[in-house]
């Protein structure tokens, strides 16, 4: 393999894992926008998506096309229940209290998964086989293409949702001004619940599509959540486009550092970026002053 094709190979695997980080970061943003909460159980939604899909496919022998969507929907439901029973009852709690509750939820999700499925790692078959596709001297797994397409699809769907549907507009409106949202008759509570459902759904989908190329186990969510959070902060909390770009960038940097330096540094990349951004540009790399100001008018 020439150096160029090796580099291409790293790029492809960086984009693949970066897409997952991007999805996790989008999940962080949706909840952050509607509540100001950093949901530290976001990574566990990914783990649950993978685990539940594995359960339906490997244990109950459902076909893969059914297991994936079922798993994602169940995770969405878990997200909604989580909001109803753990976040909603604490109406007047401070944001920091609620963030701590999400940590508790994360521990609970991990514990539950370990209780149900043990500490073993599981896998799913790839959606359309494992025959690598040759591409300019590098190889692409079909699952990679799936992952990238799912990311693109979700981003497009979210853009349409927030721009063209009333519910999407209302969710956005809540994130800009809760009082005004109340005044026009939006039920802010429902929008918060919906944001948890939507974030969990996206997390669940990420879990389903990543499991065929990367084993899933009960603790998998922690690191994914952390890196996704890094991407969300890097892209500017609440900024969807920023989340996608930052997620992929972190994936790429990680992949290059693993390939060109040593795979031992891989996991440190996202953390170092997170710390640097928090030090030097707490608004994220894409923060635009005017927009930021407008948002808090």
């Amino acid at each position: 393999m020439s150096f160029a094709s090796q580099l291409l190979q790293y790029t492809l695997s960086g984009i693949t894992i970066g897409s997952i980080y991007a999805l996790v970061a989008i999940g962080f943003n949706i909840i952050y926008n509607s509540t100001g909460i950093i949901n530290l159980a976001q990574g566990d939604f990914v783990m649950l998506g993978g685990m539940i899909a594995v359960f339906f496919h490997n244990t109950l022998h459902f076909p893969l096309v059914a297991s994936g969507p079922i798993a994602a929907l169940i995770v969405a439901l878990i997200g909604i229940l989580f909001e109803r029973f753990a976040i909603h009852p604490l109406k007047n709690a401070s944001v920091i209290t609620l963030v701590i509750i999400t940590i508790a939820a994360s521990i609970l999700f991990k514990g539950g998964a370990m209780f149900l499925w043990g500490k073993d790692a599981y896998s799913l078959p790839s959606f359309s086989g494992d025959e690598p596709i040759r591409f300019l001297g590098a190889t692409i797994l079909p699952q990679t293409i799936w992952i990238i397409c799912v990311l693109l699809f979700i981003v497009a769907a979210l853009v349409c949702f927030f721009r063209y549907t009333m519910v999407g507009r209302a969710m956005k409106a809540c994130s800009y001004n809760k009082r005004a949202a109340n005044i026009v008759g939006i039920n802010v509570n429902n929008m918060v619940m919906l944001s948890f459902g939507l974030s969990a759904l996206i997390g669940g989908i990420a879990g389903v599509i990543i499991t065929p190329i990367s084993l899933i186990e009960y603790e998998k969510g922690s690191l994914l959540g952390l890196k996704g959070f890094g991407a969300a902060v890097f892209g500017g909390l609440g900024n969807m486009g920023g989340a996608v770009a930052a997620g992929i960038l972190i994936g790429l940097l990680e992949s290059y550092s693993a390939g060109l330096l040593s795979s031992g540094y891989k996991d440190a990349v996202a953390l170092i970026i997170l710390l640097l951004v928090l030090f030097f540009r707490p608004g994220g790399i894409f923060a635009r002053k005017e927009v930021q100001k407008l948002k808090h008018y």
Partner: peptide, 30 residues
């Protein structure tokens, strides 16, 4: 709001980062 009372609040309380059109359309939410 659904029953037919609408408030023009103190300090306007608009959705500032959204367009005029979006603000008006959100007014029909009920």
């Amino acid at each position: 709001v659904r029953l037919g009372i609408s408030l023009v609040p103190e300090g306007r309380q608009l959705f500032y980062p959204m367009t005029v059109m979006d603000n008006l359309v959100l007014g029909t939410y009920s």
